[in-house]
Design a protein around this nucleic acid. Sequence first.
DNA 1: GCCAACGTTGGC
DNA 2: GCCAACGTTGGC
Length: 154
Amino acid sequence: MNYWLMKSEPVECSIDDALAMPAATVPWTGVRNYQARNFMRDAMRVGDGVLFYHSSCAEPGIVGIAEVASAPYPDPTQFDPASHYYDAAAKPDAPRWVLVDVRAIRRTPLVPIAQLRAQPELAEMAVLRRGNRLSITPVTAAEWAVITTRLPAR
DNA sequence: GCCAACGTTGGC
DNA sequence: GCCAACGTTGGC
């Protein structure tokens, strides 16, 4: 079992949007970075824990708990010329981008990025690393424990 | 809106 | 295969 932090812009898909979907599950479309893609393609397993993170918004931070809900499969938006995520170089018989489904489990009180940075135990967290631009980063079991046990009870 | 940091592209 | 230019991310 592995753990991940996955960023989503709430304008695109917030934790509440995800919870409102059938089975609270969303296809994680739009990843166009090879390293992030490779995490989904090569390392994620169904049932892996996910910290649902809101980025590019007024209050960036962790807002929920989720889990990986599918094996990787081609991201359909790469084949859609009308999509913002269209990739003319990707063909159905040679997809370039994959995704997994993510099932939202519950909303949590916001844990702002400043609060994450303030925790000494989280100093090495990949998402907090200087210059990090990955929308998907691994989370260690120790980091997962610190974050999930210190989230205020709902 | 600014800017640091990094990935991608393309000329050579 | 180098590397400058450009684009993107994302917090502030």
